[in-house]
Simulated scan of single mutants.
Amino acid sequence: MKTNIKYMLGLFMAILLTLVSCNETEYSLGDLTAPSNIVINAEVVGKDATHPNGDGSGDVKFTITADKALSYKIDYDASTPVDMVFLANGKVTKKYTNVGVHTYTVTAIVYGAGGTSSVVTKDVTVRSDFTPSADIVTALTNNSSKTWVVDKSVPGHFGVGPWSATSIRPEWWSAGVNEKVSSANCFYTATFTFAKVAATGNYELKVATPDGAFTKTGSLTTLPGIPSSGDEGCYNYPGGTSAFSFVPSSSGAPAAPTNPDNSPSTQTAILLAGVNTFIGYGAVQKEYEILVINSGYLYLRVQGTETGNAWYMKLIPKP
């Protein structure tokens, strides 16, 4: 009996091995050569013999091509924190908003089979012209000087949502009235004075922080002297003064809302110079998009400290 069992078991194993070997399929990853012959084509809109740096719109049409390419990413400016943007087909139009003529180092990463990749850079020089609406300048600065504070008395004075051209609202979280009084009252006592310098026509922001700056820590803020680690909150900060300029908003948000829940955008932004000033929240980014503004109300959003986030803030003139 034991002999028969051993025989039958051996026969079963032989049949099983035969079936496995008959159905065995060989797979190959193929040639894992990285993409080659990468070219960044940059068409500066309006560029001609008379306008060597473009028509002043700041628009550049990028097309990335390469052999054996499967996907593309691009970083538009090497002088700012790296922000690699995925391009579905290697094509995109980018609006540069720094006023004047500037040269940007653009980096493209092209991915091929098996995760292989190749990198190439290109310098692009482009001109951006922008004249803000006189109504916006007057509302923000009173054509001389005007001080603003975060409006803790209304819901939604602080909020978080996606950084998007179509969703222009704090859909992820919205503060209630006096939300931060007990945990971070410096958010409400800091003041932001916007001035138009009569002698030069330039603009200046002065930030006063009697109870500290409301910010995150370490690499999540540009403010000097902030600790390298810690929770979101108030940190000792002496305030600061910097120039600012009005620029076309880089978000691509339309001038009118796409649905009743969205706020419109003025398509104008406040761009702060340097690293020692902020508006409301001491984030990394320095471009604050003006969603709504009038003499008694300022609604802003700025790219959050985390990629893909937008911070929303409502301010009023200091009482």
Results as ranks from 00 to 15, higher is better:
313 M>Q: 08
290 I>T: 05
131 T>L: 04
216 K>D: 15
271 L>I: 01
89 N>C: 07
130 F>L: 02
232 E>S: 10
212 G>Y: 00
23 N>Q: 10
181 V>F: 03
202 N>A: 13
185 N>W: 11
239 G>R: 06
285 Q>V: 07
16 L>M: 07
163 W>R: 04
99 V>H: 01
22 C>N: 13
185 N>L: 04
194 F>V: 03
76 Y>T: 02
76 Y>I: 00
294 N>A: 01
187 F>V: 09
166 T>Q: 13
224 P>E: 12
126 V>Y: 02
124 V>R: 00
254 P>Y: 09
13 M>K: 14
61 K>M: 05
314 K>N: 15
220 L>E: 15
264 P>W: 01
107 T>C: 08
46 G>R: 08
248 P>S: 01
37 N>S: 07
92 V>W: 00
22 C>Y: 11
215 T>E: 09
272 L>G: 03
62 F>H: 05
197 V>N: 04
61 K>D: 00
139 A>F: 02
263 S>Q: 11
246 F>G: 00
44 V>L: 06
182 S>D: 12
217 T>M: 13
84 M>H: 04
1 M>V: 14
6 K>C: 11
169 R>K: 10
272 L>K: 01
44 V>E: 09
105 T>N: 09
162 P>V: 10
112 G>Q: 01
124 V>M: 01
140 L>M: 00
204 E>F: 04
188 Y>G: 07
281 Y>K: 08
310 A>F: 08
128 S>E: 12
196 K>S: 07
29 L>S: 15
168 I>L: 07
41 N>M: 13
211 D>P: 06
5 I>T: 08
52 P>Y: 10
248 P>M: 00
188 Y>P: 11
104 Y>V: 04
196 K>L: 02
36 S>P: 13
277 T>Y: 04
297 Y>I: 10
20 V>E: 12
280 G>N: 06
319 P>H: 03
187 F>Y: 10
65 T>C: 09
102 H>Q: 09
196 K>M: 02
155 P>Q: 11
48 D>K: 12
147 T>C: 09
182 S>F: 05
176 G>A: 12
